[in-house]
């Protein structure tokens, strides 16, 4: 640390330079993101309805109280949590398996890596439409495949049942994002020095012990970062649900973002809609706090 200070004299002071270098990025964030966010916060404290914008008045935390008592809000929260936990967990397991496979030397590894990037590059609105069509109860290829395999005895309306619709969305999401997770984890795996495994083998550690004693702890930091970004995305899932089910059947796939969208743009209830948006933000904030806490434990 002492050495750094002495170097300051060779240019403009290091801290000033630091601030200057982050300024453009900060400026963008402040200008384009913070202002609208602050406005959303302040709207959430009013009963603003777009139909009568002038009649809006400050109502304190009433919107939040209303939401906490709102069955639909909790239904949406449960759906969102279920979606997030299941899809991120599946992505982690599948992604990890993929990473382990791609980390092995075998012929055609490049092909696998390339294939894995395809789903991730397709716009969600398109992939969701694609999946919706594949799930169709009459023309859908998934019914055809399952019937040919003998897993079902007749075509099923996958998106039309409250039991399966959310799972359909989860599968489409896992398909799209597990490969990306796999690549991130692969990156982590490749940094683990082979010597560690070799010496452990010499010490007589078996495959499973090597996995849990070396691979898992060393990949933890990478995994947590990947999990943060995936969890944040999954928790705010919107496009996929909007295109595939629109929240149905019987509101069984309505997520928080979908609920916020409906309140804001369909019902024009900007007060309540903004309050949902703020609550999403708070939930997500809490989730990332947990991750960052875990990450810090790891780093120590």
């Amino acid at each position: 640390m002492q050495k750094r200070r002495s170097i300051k004299s060779t240019g403009i002071p290091e801290n000033i330079l630091g601030y200057l270098m982050v300024t453009p990025a900060l400026l963008c964030i402040l200008l384009i993101a913070i202002f609208p966010i602050v406005r959303t916060f302040s709207l959430s404290l009013t009963d603003m309805k777009m139909q009568f914008p002038d009649a809006a008045k400050y109502i304190g935390l009433n919107n939040y109280v209303k939401l906490l008592k709102d069955e639909r809000f909790w239904n949406a929260t449960c759906n969102t949590l279920f979606f997030t936990i299941v899809s991120v967990a599946m992505e982690l397991v599948i992604g990890f398996t993929m990473a382990l496979v791609m980390n092995m030397p075998f012929k055609g590894r490049g092909l696998v890596r390339a294939a894995v990037l395809v789903p991730w590059a397709i716009p969600t609105t398109i992939s969701a439409t694609m999946w919706k069509f594949m799930y169709h109860d009459q023309f859908g290829v998934i019914n055809d495949i399952l019937l040919r395999m003998g897993l079902i005895d007749q075509y099923k309306p996958w998106l039309g049942s409250t039991l399966s619709a959310l799972w359909c969305a989860i599968i489409a999401d896992v398909w799209k994002t597990a490969p990306f997770m796999g690549l991130l984890l692969l990156a982590g795996l490749q940094t683990i020095p082979i010597e560690l495994y070799e010496s452990a083998t010499v010490d007589g550690a078996g495959r499973i012990r090597r996995f849990f004693n070396i691979t898992v702890p060393l990949i933890m930091p990478t995994m947590l970062v990947a999990l943060i970004f995936r969890t944040l995305d999954a928790f705010r899932v919107f496009d996929l649900i909007f295109v595939m089910t629109g929240g149905g059947p019987g509101n069984s796939t309505e997520t928080l973002s979908m609920y916020a969208y409906t309140m804001l743009f369909r019902n024009l209830d900007f007060g309540l809609g903004s309050a949902i948006a703020v609550l999403i933000f708070i939930f997500v904030f809490l989730i990332s706090l947990i991750y960052i806490y875990l990450l810090n434990i790891q780093n120590d």
């Binding site: 009459q138 075509y155 149905g248």
Partner: peptide
């Protein structure tokens, strides 16, 4: 009706 009619919009039934 087809079992999936609870997911149908204009196009689905129209095509059938």
């Amino acid at each position: 009706a087809p079992e999936g009619v609870t997911t149908y919009i204009e196009n689905d039934g129209g095509v059938m």
